[in-house]
């Protein structure tokens, strides 16, 4: 086994070159490069953690904004509902009023017409009385040869009409 049998002849060279190479490795790589690489990793981790925290803050902010927006929307909806129901009530009331006014107008006009009809009827009846009185006087004059006044005839007619 050369590791044992050569040890006396080679230990000095082995230790010498190991100390040189391992020393260079320790100072150039271990002390020179590794801390920079570790610092890079640490900086990246800090950056990622910071970005995550910022994202979390932004998310909370967005949640708050959305909540406020939702509250605004709810309030607006309630206000719009109140507005529409008020407008609807107003429209119903005004329609009712208009119908009532139209009804009253119609009733008034009907009353006028009834009155006119009654007047016309009374006038026609009066005319009819006059006509029948004149007719009765003419009949009496022609049949009995008696001259009666229109008033008498009219009286007689009224009597006849009253007795049926």
């Amino acid at each position: 086994m050369p590791q044992i049998s050569q040890i006396a002849a080679t230990y000095a060279s082995q230790i010498f070159w190991l100390l040189i190479t391992f020393g260079l490795l320790y100072f150039v790589v271990g002390r020179g490069m590794v801390p920079k690489i570790v610092a890079t990793v640490d900086a990246r981790e800090a950056r990622v953690a910071g970005d995550l925290a910022a994202a979390e803050t932004a998310r909370l902010e967005a949640d708050r904004t959305e909540e406020a927006w939702r509250a605004d929307m709810d309030a607006a909806r309630v206000a719009a509902l109140a507005e529409t129901s008020k407008a609807k009530a107003q429209a119903t009331a005004s329609a009712e009023q208009q119908v009532k006014a139209a009804d009253a107008d119609l009733a008034e006009r009907l009353g006028h017409h009834d009155l006119a009809i009654a007047n016309a009827k009374a006038e026609a009846l009066a005319n009819l009385e006059t006509l029948s009185a004149e007719a009765a006087r003419d009949l009496v004059a022609k049949l009995a040869g008696i001259e009666v006044s229109v008033d008498q005839a009219a009286h007689a007619v009224r009597e006849v009409r009253a007795h049926g």
Partner: peptide, 9 residues
């Protein structure tokens, strides 16, 4: 001391 540059070195 033998400090030769060996295959090991």
């Amino acid at each position: 001391y033998d400090l030769s540059f060996t295959n090991s070195a």
